[in-house]
């Protein structure tokens, strides 16, 4: 399935997902623990440098922040009115840095590698009696059935548009849900039949 990964060979692309997640968590902790505007500006500079290291153009970075612009504006206004413009700036930059770094993680890591990492991380749970194969199966099933259910939803939508109901939440959701739930019976039979 198409993920948001951008092909590349940089050091960041090759770094294990666990390290990148750790880096993201570390950045978040430091930025919130040390409420200082210069530190957040430093971190912003580091983040943008990392984009360059990953070979990602600036517009990629901009895209991570763009959806939050209205909120930035709102926060800034509120902070200026209530406290100071410096605090407003700190909040916005810190926010932007987190969005940039989280985006960087997504842009430089294949979702399949993230899932492999996730499954490896969960393996110790086996000793606690969690059946980790069930979790892996659930993840695979979801990947498998997103395209199937997308066509189900499209079919339902087409059928309803013949009746002028293609924009009705009811007319789309109810048949789609019922068809999905009906499928589950045979799918679980099929899984059991293959010895799961």
């Amino acid at each position: 399935m198409l993920d948001l990964y951008v092909e590349g060979r940089s050091a960041l692309h090759r770094l294990g997902p666990g390290w990148k997640i750790l880096g993201l968590a570390f950045s978040g902790t430091v930025l919130f623990a040390v409420d200082h505007v210069w530190l957040s500006i430093l971190w912003l500079a580091i983040s943008l440098t990392l984009y360059a290291v990953a070979g990602l153009p600036l517009w990629r970075a901009w895209r991570q922040i763009r959806p939050a612009l209205w909120l930035f504006a709102l926060i800034f206004v509120v902070q200026v009115l209530l406290h100071s413009w410096q605090l407003g700036l700190l909040v916005i930059i810190r926010f932007a840095v987190l969005l940039l770094l989280a985006g960087l993680l997504t842009l430089t890591t294949r979702s399949s590698d993230m899932i492999d990492g996730l499954e490896a991380g969960m393996r110790p749970l086996h000793r606690l009696g969690v059946r980790t194969e069930s979790i892996s199966l659930a993840i695979s099933l979801t990947f498998r059935f997103i395209p199937v259910l997308t066509s189900v939803v499209h079919e339902v939508r087409e059928a309803q548009s013949a009746r002028g109901l293609e924009r009705s939440v009811f007319a789309i959701a109810i048949p789609s849900i019922i068809r999905t739930l009906r499928m589950s019976e045979e799918i679980s039979d099929a899984i059991d039949a293959r010895g799961f």
């Binding site: 059935f145 259910l149 939803v153 499209h154 924009r167 789309i172 959701a173 789609s176 589950s184």
Partner: peptide, 28 residues
């Protein structure tokens, strides 16, 4: 957890995703 439950969890997750790719469902 029974296989049926695993399947229901996965299918519902997939359905929520599928409902997200259908544009233009708005409520008049």
């Amino acid at each position: 957890m029974a296989t049926k439950d695993i399947v229901l969890i996965a299918l519902f997750a997939a359905l929520v995703a599928a409902l997200g790719v259908v544009p233009n469902i708005t409520l008049p």
